[in-house]
Amino acid sequence: MKCESCDNEATVHDTLLREGAWVEVHFCEACAAKQGIAQPGASLNDLLTNFVLPQIAGEAAKRPKPAKARTPVCAECGFTFEQFRQAGLFGCPSCYTAFESLLLPLLERAHEGAMQHVGKVPKRITEAASGKESVNGARALAERRERLEREKLLRRQLDDAVKSEQYELAAKFRDQLQRLLDSSRAADPSRNA
């Protein structure tokens, strides 16, 4: 099978939300990386290491083959990401945490690029947040949100720079992104998926 964007062999197969419907897509690794599609089990960091960074360095041919796809499992309900792809539905609320790293690109596509809820919040959450302990929680939430926004922006800029072959600029964004990801991991161990 051929890649949808070029003539290479398609090796990355994914199911994406497009205009509210699930569609099968097939890309070669390079094009998949450009589309922001991760291999099952790949975190953003893997994606960068395996696809984006070697490309920048012009080492695409030498890049390591991605690890054999592992399908993550929700510890709460036993649902696998593969099952989710087939059903289009999650097994339980905890699946959102279990599959977070795989989910964000999907969400971004389905919801005009957004990855953070804004709008109504159940009262018990707001009330809990008005307690002393949760003031910190709210601040942490705001910081995390800011980091995510920044991460999103950097990924876009990096992507654009690579597309327009501005490799110096790309390297700068890559370094910034790497620092941000490192500091996120330090600040928020839950993102260490």
């Binding site: 939300l17 999650f90 609320p93 959102y96 953070q116 809820h117 959450i125 939430l141 995390r144």
Partner: peptide, 14 residues
């Protein structure tokens, strides 16, 4: 089921 980050958690991510 609610997450401060993703809001109300639904069976379908759409």
């Amino acid at each position: 089921a609610f997450s401060p980050k993703l809001g109300y958690l639904t069976a379908c991510p759409t």
